[in-house]
């Protein structure tokens, strides 16, 4: 057990928690915005995958990481808006629509990869670019803190700024109020003149944008290639993080960090003498346990409140 503690308290472990949390956090931000507008985007997983392949392909074509990143984010927004069209105009069930997006992305990304490279596994034959890591001046020279905070991928810093942006947007701007009111009760929102459809399109577009950044991080930051189904359930873990965070930006960020911790912990256990098949399920087990603990405490609270009300009457 001794070396497990050594792993956890090493600065490079905490650094890797931040790194591993990045895509989960970005997708979770997408989940927050869409869920608060009442159109929870189940397709995050697939959007990340399509963004990941788009980033790789476009950056290889243009030899520019930033154009690749931009294209990945655009792909994310586009898919989310197509989903939005079906859900908002054609009245598709949002869950089935999300499932369609995921099925499409899982096969469609491999299809695209095969058509472009003739391979079905990874994009290693494409000379794709990587979004650079950033060393923050001054902070990078501070011992321990510098080692943890500085030197991350640009997209990680975008993720951190996005947390602040989403928090401010939802709580301090008219758009945020609109999104929340549409999610709370869209009839009421409609009655005061809010264009529900437009707000939901915007919310879905934003969720696609965040998932797009998350997907780009996977193939252009976390690693430097695309591989089949590389989002590996992160979109779903993000939805769980959002559910546990109660749709609240700070709560969701904290749960995303917990899941990132579990994932990073699983990664660093690879070297130890524990079967790798069992290590890979740690993040999933933590997610299920987290959801259970959250839901059970919530229902007991509700029951207590109800019981109190009865006594008072």
């Amino acid at each position: 057990m001794g070396n497990i503690w050594e792993i956890i308290f090493a600065t490079d472990f905490i650094f890797s928690v931040v790194r591993v949390t990045t895509p989960i956090l970005l997708a979770a931000l997408g989940a927050i915005v869409s869920d608060r507008a009442g159109v929870v985007n189940i397709g995050l997983e697939g959007i990340m995958l399509m963004a990941a392949i788009t980033g790789v392909v476009i950056s290889a074509q243009t030899q520019s990481a930033f154009i690749g990143l931009f294209a990945a984010v655009c792909a994310g927004i586009l898919i989310a808006l197509i989903l939005g069209y079906f859900v908002l105009e054609m009245k598709s069930n949002i869950i089935l629509g999300g499932i369609a997006v995921n099925l499409f992305a899982s096969g469609g990304s491999v299809f695209l990869l095969y058509v472009l490279t003739g391979e079905k596994g990874t994009s290693s034959s494409l000379a794709s670019k990587v979004v650079p890591n950033i060393n923050i001046p001054i902070i990078k020279d501070i011992p321990i803190i510098g080692e943890i905070i500085s030197g991350h991928n640009l997209i990680t810093y975008i993720a951190i700024l996005s947390v602040v942006a989403v928090y401010l947007m939802l709580n301090k701007t008219p758009m945020g109020t609109k999104i929340r009111s549409v999610g709370e009760n869209y009839h009421a929102a409609e009655s005061v003149g809010i264009n529900v459809k437009k707000v939901r399109y915007i919310a879905l577009g934003l969720s696609g944008m965040f998932a797009g950044f998350g997907g780009a991080f996977l193939s252009m930051g976390y690693v430097s290639w695309f591989s089949r189904d590389m989002s590996a359930g992160r979109g779903w873990i993000a939805l769980a993080a959002e559910a546990m965070g109660g749709g609240n930006t700070i709560g969701t960020t904290i749960t995303a960090l917990i899941f990132g911790f579990a994932q990073a912990f699983a990664n660093s256990l690879q070297g130890l003498n524990i079967p790798s098949e069992l290590i890979t399920i740690i993040p999933n087990v933590v997610t299920v346990l987290g959801l259970c603990i959250f839901a059970i405490t919530k229902t007991t609270k509700v029951r207590k409140v109800k019981a109190n009300e009865k006594n008072n009457n």
């Binding site: 369609a100 899982s106 079905k120």
Partner: peptide, 22 residues
């Protein structure tokens, strides 16, 4: 043409069939 092509067909079928307004 790779067999993953089928994913495109499936996604469109799901979207259209679940679309009430279709």
């Amino acid at each position: 043409v790779p067999s993953e092509m089928i994913a495109i067909i499936q996604a469109i079928i799901i979207l259209l069939i679940s679309a009430e307004r279709f």
